Simulated scan of single mutants.
Amino acid sequence: MKPLCFARNQIIPSSEATLHPMDIGLIRGYGIFDFFRTENFVPLFLTDYLDRFIGSAQKTYLPLDFNKETLRNIILELIEKNDLRQGGIRMLLSGGMSDNHFSPAKGDLFIFCEDLMFPGEQKYTNGVKLSSIEHVRALAEIKTTNYTFPVWLSSNWKKEGAEDVIYHHNGLISESSRSNIFVIKNGEIFTPDQNVLHGITRKRVLELSGSIKIQPIGFDETLAADEVFMTSTTKKILPVTRIDDRQIGNGKPGKITKELIQAFQEMEQKNSG
Score class of each variant (00 low, 15 high):
95 G>A: 04
97 M>R: 15
98 S>R: 00
99 D>H: 15
100 N>F: 14
102 F>K: 01
102 F>Q: 01
103 S>F: 02
103 S>G: 05
104 P>I: 14
105 A>P: 02
105 A>H: 04
109 L>Y: 02
114 E>L: 13
115 D>G: 11
117 M>T: 14
118 F>E: 12
120 G>M: 13
121 E>Q: 14
122 Q>T: 10
122 Q>L: 09
123 K>D: 10
123 K>A: 09
127 G>S: 09
128 V>P: 07
129 K>M: 11
131 S>G: 12
134 E>W: 03
138 A>N: 14
138 A>L: 14
141 E>M: 06
143 K>M: 04
144 T>P: 06
148 T>D: 02
150 P>S: 04
151 V>H: 10
153 L>K: 12
153 L>F: 11
154 S>L: 08
155 S>H: 06
156 N>C: 04
156 N>E: 12
160 E>Y: 15
161 G>M: 01
165 V>M: 13
166 I>R: 03
168 H>K: 11
169 H>K: 09
170 N>E: 10
175 E>K: 02
176 S>F: 03
176 S>N: 12
178 R>M: 07
180 N>L: 13
181 I>A: 10
181 I>L: 14
183 V>H: 03
183 V>G: 02
191 T>H: 12
191 T>Q: 06
192 P>W: 11
194 Q>R: 13
195 N>Q: 13
196 V>F: 11
197 L>Q: 11
199 G>N: 13
199 G>L: 14
201 T>S: 00
203 K>G: 03
204 R>P: 03
204 R>Q: 13
205 V>Q: 05
205 V>H: 02
209 S>W: 07
210 G>T: 09
211 S>Q: 12
212 I>Q: 03
213 K>V: 13
214 I>N: 00
215 Q>S: 11
217 I>L: 03
217 I>C: 03
217 I>F: 04
218 G>W: 15
218 G>V: 15
221 E>I: 10
222 T>C: 12
222 T>S: 02
224 A>N: 15
225 A>Y: 00
225 A>W: 00
226 D>M: 10
227 E>P: 02
228 V>F: 10
229 F>K: 09
230 M>E: 03
233 T>L: 06
233 T>Y: 01
234 T>M: 04
234 T>W: 00
235 K>Y: 09
235 K>T: 14
236 K>P: 00
237 I>P: 03
237 I>G: 09
237 I>A: 08
